Simulated assay, not measured.
Amino acid sequence: MLARMSKTTDSMESLIQLLDVVDTLPGATALRARSYELLDLAEGSAVVDVGCGAGRAAGELAQRGARAIGVDVSEEMIALARHRWPQADFRVGDARELPLKDGEVAGYRAEKVFHELQDAAEALAEARRVLAPGGRIVLIGQDWDTFIIDSDDPALTRTIVHARADLTPNPRAARRYRNLLLEAGFEHVALEVHTGVFTNGAMLPMLTGIAEAARSAGAITPAQEASWVNEQRQRAQQGRMFLAVPIFLASGGRP
């Protein structure tokens, strides 16, 4: 039991470390700023950041003058967010049942959330409930089937990427953002694509993680995992790693 608890704690700490690295990359900072522009919030307006994690976006929105509310299913993440960003309001909650009143917020933001949801339509119905008429919604996320990774073994790389995608509840949600918003009744729906390109070791933990997941799923052998990870480590050390991730950013308005 203690071993399992220790492993869970280690996994959470590793996730937080990876999120901190990703969140401070220049491309990620610019993408968050663009999402805030698309929310188009008036001073003092209430906004919810769903799946807020350690709270960076909610904290930044509060610094910009919004009444920011961060919601996450993880009590550990909410506790960390409250410590890091005391100027925002953080609550434990689920995207399908938000701890908010009808029409309470003028803005709804969710980053890297909808690929974790089996039923995106249910979450968008909840988004419409909590948004006031005229409120804005912004969704951000990557399509897990479209990771582009340079490798000496492209066939094995393709197997690893697709195997990892298949372990995700809704891996292709991001490519459906526009249609999902339209189907949910949002208006003036727009879509942008921003590509994150990584050529150093900052994202090596993500690459080793998807290889481990593919091996755990039985899609590749331990020997294939070791070979592929070793190649990516060498590329990172030599400054020759290449990972490109298309990020989809969709926005719309509540009638």
Score class of each variant (00 low, 15 high):
Phe114Ile: 09
Gly93His: 05
Leu139Val: 08
His115Ser: 11
Phe147Ile: 08
Pro133Tyr: 02
Phe186Ile: 13
Val138Lys: 00
Gly135Thr: 11
Glu97Phe: 05
Leu180Glu: 13
Thr159Lys: 07
Arg96Met: 10
Pro133Phe: 00
Arg176Lys: 13
Ala106His: 14
Gln142Trp: 07
Tyr177Ala: 08
Arg178Cys: 07
His188Tyr: 00
Asp150Cys: 08
Ala132Trp: 01
Leu182Ile: 13
Ala165Lys: 04
Arg178Glu: 14
Asp145Pro: 02
Phe147Asn: 03
Glu116His: 15
Pro169Phe: 00
Leu131Cys: 10
Glu183Asp: 15
Thr168Gln: 09
Ala184Thr: 12
His162Ala: 12
Gln118Thr: 15
Arg176Ala: 14
Ala121Phe: 07
Glu187Val: 15
Ala173Gly: 08
Leu180Lys: 03
Thr159Leu: 09
Val130Cys: 02
Ala132Arg: 15
Asp152Arg: 06
Ala163Glu: 05
Pro169Gly: 03
Leu139Ser: 06
Val92Ser: 02
Gly135His: 06
Gly141Leu: 04
Pro169Tyr: 03
Ala127Cys: 08
Ala127Met: 08
Asn179Ser: 12
Arg175Pro: 01
Asp153Val: 03
Gly103Glu: 14
Val113Ser: 00
Arg158Gly: 12
Ala163Ser: 12
Glu97Gly: 12
Thr168Cys: 12
Pro169Gln: 02
Ala173Tyr: 04
Pro169Asp: 02
Thr146Glu: 07
Ala173Met: 10
Pro99Phe: 05
Gly135Glu: 06
Trp144Lys: 04
Glu183Ile: 13
Leu139Asn: 01
Ala125Ser: 14
Asn170Asp: 07
Ser151Phe: 08
Val113Ala: 02
Glu183Cys: 08
Gln142Asn: 14
Thr159Met: 07
Asp119Trp: 05
Arg129Phe: 02
Arg128Met: 07
Gly107Phe: 05
Ala127Gly: 04
Glu111Gln: 14
Ser151Val: 11
Thr157Trp: 00
Asp102Cys: 04
Gln142Met: 13
Asp102Tyr: 02
Leu167Lys: 00
Arg158Asn: 13
Lys112Ala: 11
Gly93Cys: 07
Ala110Val: 08
His162Cys: 00
Asn179Phe: 03
Ala165Asp: 12
Phe186Arg: 03
Val113Leu: 14
Asn170Arg: 10
Arg109Gly: 01
Ala173Pro: 11
Leu98Pro: 08
Leu167Ser: 13
Gly135Ile: 12
Val130Ala: 00
Glu104Cys: 04
Ala121Cys: 05
Ala123His: 09
Thr157Pro: 03
Arg178Gln: 13
Leu156Cys: 10
Ala106Thr: 08
Asp145Ala: 04
Leu181Met: 11
Gly141Thr: 10
His162Asp: 12
Pro169Arg: 05
Pro99Ser: 05
Arg158Val: 09
Arg175Ser: 09
Ile137Met: 00
Gly93Trp: 07
Arg178Asn: 01
Asp145Lys: 01
Ala132Pro: 04
Ala163Met: 08
Leu117Pro: 08
Leu124Glu: 12
